[in-house]
Write a protein that binds this DNA or RNA. Structure first.
Length: 534
DNA sequence: ACAAGTGCCTC
DNA sequence: CTCGGAA
DNA sequence: TTCCGAGGAGGCACTTGT
């Protein structure tokens, strides 16, 4: 099939409002593909290339110079091949080689094809349809129930291969795609709740578990073979030897576990998220250190009689404590799939499988108990809790209401220093705010930006109001007289080298404007810094 | 040898 | 990761 | 209810430029 047909379909999808019509358009195209074209085409129409990292982003795309072709000649296979070549182009000189490859490719593309490629490779397809719509499209094209596609997608992890299976083999082929140890499934996600009482009232009897601020891990083990995947199903096995050591010791023959990995300090307190992230990457290629860092002590051993050898090696390494896994779900144990079993049964399997690495938590329907678990978690330096209905199955890939996360929210009164013009549906509105805390010595210290929490009506108001306060502007940004106070909610702050106050807001969103307040009433930089842990 | 720019990953 | 809009 | 897209913070790997 010509790539131009993909581009035309994407255009049609973008011009359509109804999701079902978008799916119809996509299904029409899927039916016309050759079998070998299904996987790349599903990727292109969900904004991805199946080769993954190809080392091409906006800067690279903007530097391409080429004359568009008049007639479409590129096929789906041509583009797929080009992506494979780009992915394989690494090492010294690869930048120029990729640029050359892209120039030649764009020279063979018509103008609409080139524009589509820029959006695809730039990660901004913006056609109002992604994997969610594509699932329905695949079902329509293959004449199978959407639920069958959805389930295969969740358990198999990749929609492109599910699409090919559905179209070439129908329901029977989809049913072959089950949970397989060594292949990641899409993790279940949690929706939010304002507090533990609300969560428990919605859920009834629930497992209330600590929520740790680290990296989501999905661990697979089959005999001696171990895999560690992230939330987005990336394989980080080689980068987390401390975890694989611990997993190797579990009393199981095969297992699939869901959990969180966090780095801890000497005192047994969790490190800041940024430190956990950097921990993840440091092990590989770090010859001596990786071998010396033996399995971390189990949580119960750390607080009282920690293993002396571990302590010594850690001190030598200048890298105290380390990365620890905390598991909160068990999806497969010794040959038995548990995804469809109720949480209570999965927790029983978890207890048998992970011993000391179990996420702390309590099954309860008592509001006071739930509140106490939250207090314990926060007291131990963690992020909050997740409450989970005890009867719920593991809804892979879904952000269902069976899991509710509860995190404390802080609010700050900050001053708008500048705003950036929005893009896409925010075009024409001043959207992204630069936020400053008050410096008691005079002036304001920028601590972050936010574009979240604004309704369309607020965007309109804010664009007009900030326009009145404009002092100077560059392309994309308007600096304003610092007098507008805005109440901002944050999950917390983190240390920053970018911002002059040494702190940056985490997940900042606008609550409301405070026109009743003056900049002199705004929170100080000291108040913001006080939110740093420790 | 070192710094800057870019891509891509986590949340 | 959060949020608001839309189907 | 579900999906999409608006865009935030930091940190490492890799490549290129000085």
């Amino acid at each position: 099939m010509l790539f131009a047909e993909i581009v035309a379909t994407s255009g049609g999808v973008a011009a359509t409002a109804a999701r079902s019509t978008k799916a119809d358009l996509l299904a029409d195209l899927l039916r016309r593909l050759d079998d070998d074209e299904v996987e790349p085409a599903v990727g292109f129409l969900t904004g991805e290339v199946r080769q993954g990292r190809i080392g091409v982003g906006w800067a690279t795309l903007m530097a391409i110079v080429s004359d568009p072709s008049a007639e479409p000649t590129l096929t789906v296979g041509d583009i797929d091949l080009a992506m494979s070549e780009l992915a394989a182009t690494i090492g010294s000189g690869s930048g120029a080689a990729r640029a050359s490859l892209l120039s030649r490719l764009f020279g063979r593309a018509t103008e609409p094809e080139a524009a589509f490629l820029v959006r695809l490779l730039g990660g901004e397809l913006r056609q109002g349809a992604n994997e969610g719509v594509m699932v329905d499209a695949v079902a329509k094209a293959a004449g199978v129930p959407a639920a069958a596609v959805r389930r295969a997608h969740m358990l198999g992890g990749r929609l492109d291969t599910c699409a090919r299976a559905a179209i070439t083999g129908g329901t029977a082929a989809l049913e072959q795609i089950g949970l397989q140890v060594g292949r990641p499934l899409r993790p279940m996600l949690a929706s939010t709740a304002p507090d533990t009482a609300t969560a428990l009232e919605d859920l009834g009897r629930a497992s209330v578990e600590w929520k740790l601020d680290g990296i989501r891990i999905q661990v697979h083990r089959q005999g001696d073979a171990i895999w560690v995947f992230t939330r987005n199903l990336n394989d980080i096995t080689a980068r987390v030897p401390e975890l694989t050591d611990a997993i190797a010791r579990l009393p199981v023959t095969s297992v699939v576990l869901d959990g969180e990995a966090v780095a801890f300090d000497d005192a047994g307190r969790p490190r800041m998220f940024q430190e956990t992230v950097s921990w993840r990457a440091r092990a590989e290629g770090d010859e001596g250190a990786a071998a010396a860092t033996s399995s971390p002590a189990a949580p119960d051993a750390v607080t009282d009689d920690a293993d002396a050898d571990v302590e010594v090696e850690i001190a030598l390494d200048q890298a105290p404590a380390g990365l620890r896994p905390y598991f909160f779900d068990c999806l497969h144990l010794d040959g038995r799939d548990l995804v469809d079993e109720p949480l209570a049964d999965r927790l029983a399997a978890l207890d048998a499988a992970v011993g000391p690495w179990r996420m702390p938590g309590t099954v309860t329907d008592d509001l006071a108990v739930a509140a106490a678990v939250l207090a314990e978690s926060l007291g131990a330096g963690h992020e909050g809790v997740v409450a989970k209905a005890v009867g719920s199955p593991y809804e892979a890939g879904r952000r269902g209401k069976a899991w509710r996360k509860v995190k404390p929210v802080h609010t700050l009164d900050l001053v708008v220093l500048a705003a950036e013009w929005g893009h896409g549906r925010r075009q024409g509105w001043l959207s992204n705010l630069h936020l400053g805390a008050r410096d008691p010595a005079g002036g304001f210290v920028m601590v972050g930006k936010t574009f979240k929490g604004m309704t369309d009506a607020l965007l309109t108001w804010q664009t007009e109001r900030l326009g009145q306060l404009e002092e100077r502007a560059t392309k994309g940004t308007v600096w304003v007289h610092p007098e507008l106070v805005v109440e901002v909610a944050v999950d917390g702050v983190q240390s920053s080298t970018r911002y002059p106050g040494g702190v940056a807001l985490r997940f900042a969103r606008v609550v409301r404007y405070r026109e009743d307040k003056d900049p002199a009433d705004a929170d100080t930089i000291g108040a913001v810094q006080a939110l740093l842990p420790g």
